[in-house]
Simulated scan of single mutants.
Amino acid sequence: MIGIVGIVIIFAMVFGGYLLAGGKLAIIIKSLPYEMMMIGGAAVGAFVISNDVPAIKHTLKDIGKVFKGPTWKPEDYRDLLCLMFELIRIARQNPLDLETHIEAPGDSPVFGRYPKIAADHEAVDLICDTLRAAGMNYDDPHQVEEVLEKRLEAHMHHSMHSSHALQTVADGLPALGIVAAVLGVIKTMGSIDQPPEVLGKMIGGALVGTFLGVFLAYGLVGPFAVKLKAAVEEDAHFYNLIREVLVANLHNHPPTICIEVGRQNTPGSRRPSFSDLEEALKASKREAA
């Protein structure tokens, strides 16, 4: 919602200020379709050239985060801690029972109580693979911690691709605006025999290209890339939380301590309070009983 508010403010301030200064929208409106076709079309074409089909689909999907914000909300962090507590408790009580959950998480009643987390393949795979590795009796927990670190870095790099792709488009838009403006000047030079009032309108139309390229770059696409990057970085805390809890488990801390380590490493805006988490854990125990 806040993203839509920002867009409204941008348009209101830019075009409102232009009108209050005595500008006329007629020439912008007349030139806009052609300039948008040249600049926007070239930007889309360059984006398609620079990315493969999966990356294009991933970027288009991620644009929704500009308006929806990060995927993981405060209640999801609380649910994750409850899920991790249940799995660690099962692993400590009966490792054989744990195998039924981590080998087929889609059929697990534990994962089934948290459908949003269960639907995220990266989170589920991270949990199951690490718990499976823990069952192999690793002598050095730091080995697993290093593997987790590299895996999270790879996931972060992949998740950032959409932001980088949009930022590349934003960086190229001003130059594409200049291209459109030059084409407008070329068109104007072909009509140099026209009276000044006609030439003035043609030059004004050509300058719309420069305006549009800069406006799209710094007013829309650039901020989209920044917001998307912030959302991805915020979501990264969710996966880092999984790592912290699992590493604590590898060091054989009690389940409650493992969960508290995770809670303490949750960002303040997403961190559940101690009492809220305790109530959620009690509720999960009742459901599991």
Rank of each mutant, 00 (worst) to 15 (best):
V214Q: 03
F215Q: 09
F215W: 14
F215T: 13
L216Y: 12
L216T: 12
Y218P: 06
V221K: 02
G222I: 10
G222S: 08
P223M: 10
F224Y: 14
F224K: 10
F224I: 14
A225D: 14
V226Y: 14
V226E: 09
V226D: 12
V226C: 08
V226R: 07
V226N: 13
K227G: 07
K227D: 07
L228D: 02
L228H: 01
K229M: 05
A230P: 02
V232C: 07
E233L: 11
E233Y: 02
E234K: 15
E234S: 15
D235H: 06
A236P: 10
A236L: 10
H237P: 05
H237N: 12
H237Q: 15
Y239K: 13
Y239F: 15
Y239N: 14
Y239D: 12
N240G: 13
L241Y: 00
I242S: 05
I242P: 00
E244L: 05
E244V: 10
L246C: 03
L246A: 03
L246P: 08
L246V: 04
V247D: 07
V247M: 02
A248K: 04
N249Q: 15
N249I: 05
N249R: 06
L250W: 01
L250V: 00
H251K: 03
H251F: 06
H251N: 05
H251A: 01
N252E: 05
H253G: 01
H253W: 08
H253Q: 04
H253K: 07
P254C: 01
P254G: 03
P255S: 11
P255Q: 08
P255M: 04
P255F: 04
T256P: 14
I259A: 01
I259L: 02
E260Q: 00
E260D: 11
V261E: 08
V261G: 04
V261T: 13
R263H: 05
Q264S: 09
N265S: 09
N265W: 04
T266L: 08
G268M: 12
G268E: 08
R270W: 09
R271D: 13
P272G: 09
P272I: 06
P272Q: 12
P272M: 06
S273G: 14
S273Y: 04
S273M: 02
F274D: 04
S275A: 13
S275F: 06
D276V: 03
D276K: 10
L277G: 13
L277I: 09
